[in-house]
């Protein structure tokens, strides 16, 4: 990446440092600001991070997957979005790849992720 682009992206480093470091396989809670008409409320989305895309750039995003009443739900969050209130890591997962798309075809016991113990 060009050095000059970093000048533009520099001011967003502060937003990035607000959040804890997390990786694919971790279970997180994302508090997201939602506008409904004039009202604003915060919605929590809890699930497993299955990918982090374009890491380091302004276009970075991450995907959180959860299974809600038997149906898989995935949400993509741009990490620098001002609508994200907070990101909280509940559990560190031990995984061997960076994109956990294999979880999509699995359910129940085989969709579990081992906990990373320090």
């Amino acid at each position: 990446m060009s050095e000059l682009i970093k000048i533009v992206e520099k001011e967003y480093q502060e937003t990035r440092s607000k959040y804890p470091d997390f990786n694919p396989g971790d279970t997180v809670v994302v508090a997201y600001n939602i506008k409904e008409g004039n009202k604003e409320r915060i919605q929590n989305f809890q699930g497993t991070v299955i990918q982090r895309k374009n890491k380091g750039s302004n276009g970075e995003s991450f995907t959180v997957r959860k299974v809600s009443s038997g149906v898989g739900v995935e949400r993509v969050f741009p990490i620098l979005s001002p609508n994200i209130e907070s990101i909280q890591v509940l559990r560190r997962g031990k995984v061997r790849r960076s994109k956990l798309f294999y979880l999509r075809g699995r359910q129940g016991k085989s969709a579990r992720i081992k906990e990373k113990l320090k």
């Binding site: 990446m1 000059l4 533009v8 992206e9 967003y12 620098l80 001002p82």
Partner: peptide, 11 residues
């Protein structure tokens, strides 16, 4: 120089 993205006041 290249492309990037920024966020406006509406997010």
């Amino acid at each position: 120089i290249g492309m990037t993205s920024v966020y406006d006041e509406n997010g």
